[in-house]
Design a protein around this nucleic acid. Structure first.
Lengths: 118, 118
DNA sequence: CAAGTTGTTCTAGTTCAGCTAGAACAATAG
DNA sequence: CTATTGTTCTAGCTGAACTAGAACAACTTG
C-alpha cells in the first residue's frame, strides 16, 4: 500500500494518511488482517511526527476500518473487505458530473457534507 | 433561500454559507439573476461578522456561481441555472452507498477529494 | 523471564486558518 | 448628493493541527 502526503495541501496531514488507507481498502489493494507499518516507521518515512500518524490510525479505528493495539501495530479490520464496486462507481459518476458542471472539489464536498437525502 | 449556520460545526462558517447557496442553486430554489441579501444584512441575521459572509460570496464568485459588485450586491450568475438532475442523483447514490458501507461523511469526502478517476 | 516493539497518555510549545472588529474607500443605485 | 454595498487594510483572538519529548502499558519474540 502506497501512502504519500502533500505538506502544502490544505487537507490535514492525518486526514491525508487516513484517506490513503481508505483508498487502498476501497481499491482492494489491502486485505483484511494485513498489517500496516508501525506508526514510528511510517512517521519516519513520511518525515512526520509519530503523533500525526497515530492520529490517523485512531481515526480509522473509530471508523471500524482498523484494529490498533499496542505491541501489535495496526491491521486492516475483519469486515473491512466489503464489496466496494458500487461505491467506486458512485464516486466516479459524481466526479464526472462535477466536472461536467464545472464544480470545484470544495463545492462537491460541501454539497456532500450538508445535503440531505430527499 | 434559507441560509442557516451551525457555529459548533467543524466546517468553517464561510464554507457553510457558500454551501447553503450552492444547495439552493442545485435544488433550483433560486433563479439566475436573483439577488442575495447584502453581506451586512446576512451577517446581522446570522450573527456573524461581515467579512465572514464576504468570504463566502468571494468563494462563490471564484466558482462562477455568483456575480458580486459593490453598490449592487450579489446575484446568482447567469449560466448557473444548469440541469442539476444528474448531479443530485449522483449525490444521492453516493450517500446511500456510503450509508450501506457504514462510511462516515469524513471518509466519503476524503475519498472524493483524493480519489482519481480510473 | 528479559528485551525489544508498538500504541497510549501527558505535557508543552509553535504555526496558521478562520473569525472578529473597525475604518477608510470606491462603485453603484436612487 | 446621499445611502447602499462590496473592497481593502490593519489588528488581535482562538482553536485545530503539528511537532517534540518522555513515561508507560500491552504484546511479541528469543
Amino acid at each position: 500500500m502506497l501512502i504519500t502526503v502533500d505538506p502544502t495541501s490544505a487537507v490535514p496531514l492525518f486526514d491525508q494518511i487516513a484517506t490513503a488507507v481508505r483508498i487502498a481498502v476501497v481499491r482492494g489493494e489491502v486485505a483484511a488482517g494485513e498489517r500496516l507499518p508501525s506508526a514510528r516507521e511510517l512517521a519516519d518515512s513520511l518525515d512526520l511526527n509519530v503523533h500525526t500518524v497515530l492520529h490517523a490510525y485512531r481515526t480509522l479505528r473509530e471508523e471500524g476500518l482498523l484494529e490498533v493495539r499496542r505491541g501489535r501495530g495496526a491491521t486492516i479490520a475483519t469486515g473491512a473487505g466489503r464489496d466496494y464496486q458500487d461505491l467506486r462507481a458512485a464516486l466516479d459518476t459524481l466526479l464526472a458530473e462535477g466536472d461536467r458542471l464545472g464544480l470545484t472539489r470544495q463545492a462537491l464536498t460541501g454539497l456532500l457534507t450538508h445535503e440531505e437525502t430527499r
